[in-house]
Design a protein around this nucleic acid. Structure first.
Ligand code: SF4
Ligand code: SF4
Lengths: 153, 153
DNA sequence: TATTATTGAGACTCTTTTATCTTAAAATAC
DNA sequence: GTATTTTAAGATAAAAGAGTCTCAATAATA
């Protein structure tokens, strides 16, 4: 898999937050229910995002988490780096240590190109952009549920 | 990681075979020594490639494995599919089951593009092509060893 | 102040991946 | 035919990833 499960869950939750973002704190339990992710597991993932300054949290009744910045200012790469780290964008395709131009493997040039394509996609895509698209076309964030199901009630 | 460790080892070994290919069987032990991969682990990986018809093996003295086809006719994708399966090229970036155009997630369009770029890279690159490049520029297949070290003696 | 709702943190378990070890089967060479 | 070299197959072990559980800390509210 390109992204770890933790990372994917972090992305889904971030999209959820960006879709509701009115500055309110959303309880993690709400998200874990709606997104069909284990509550405790999601909690740990969101703690990482909080530690990285992407989210802020508030304890107690009416507490929860929210984005620290506008969804327009958060790129997918921010979340990927916070959770999976930079490996995907820096590692050798052949798994050799210390990938770099001075000591490349035969795949280097081609892989560097592909890697850049991945990087660019993650860097140019904002949460808001995906939320707009998701709302317009009622796309899904869970196995079944489209944007409409997730956010009404 | 984009590719599993098994897959990467399979690729390295395939490149090794393509680089020496004179129709001779190469013992797995030779490859595991040269490529610094655990012998037993490499054996199991190459058994998969043999089962998929990419390699053929021969037991006993002077035995080993060799490519069934010319290196010019083996693409990286063949090895990736044999070891990691098609998941990388068919899975949803958000980990949702049954990725497809009828029920997409918000990332679908962008991910499909990126995925195609990966697919194309793997599909258009042959073993021979990488071997030529590796020999010309003495690139590495191990942490330290360039093509020259691996194949002399 | 007591209760409840919430995140934080850590221990723990389960699963998958990675790696090792042992034995069997096949082919050769003596 | 016996010993040797090699792959095949499967059991086992170690490490990493994914997921669960428990309890502590914080804040609101009754
Ligand atoms: S360069 Fe290659 S060895 Fe260096 S890193 Fe990139 S893919 Fe590998
Ligand atoms: S399509 Fe999307 S949901 Fe469907 S798969 Fe592709 S990335 Fe996902």
């Amino acid at each position: 898999m390109l992204l770890s499960k933790s990372c994917v869950y972090g992305l889904r939750a971030s999209l959820y937050l960006a879709a509701r973002n009115q500055g309110e704190f959303i309880p993690i339990r709400t998200m874990s229910d709606k997104l069909e992710i284990s509550f405790h597991f999601l909690t740990k993932i969101l703690q990482q995002l909080t530690a990285e300054g992407i989210l802020e949290s508030f304890k107690g009744p009416n507490g929860g988490v929210r984005l620290t910045r506008e969804g327009t200012e958060i790129q997918l790469i921010d979340i990927v780096l916070a959770i999976d780290g930079p490996q995907l964008l820096t590692e050798c395709a052949l798994g050799l240590p210390g990938c770099g131009v001075k000591n490349p493997c035969p795949l280097h040039d081609k892989w560097a190109e592909t890697r850049d394509a991945i990087h660019e996609m993650l860097e140019k895509t904002t949460l808001t952009e995906l939320v707009h698209k998701g709302k317009l076309e009622n796309l899904r964030l869970t196995t079944e549920g489209g944007f409409d199901i997730l956010f009404d009630n």
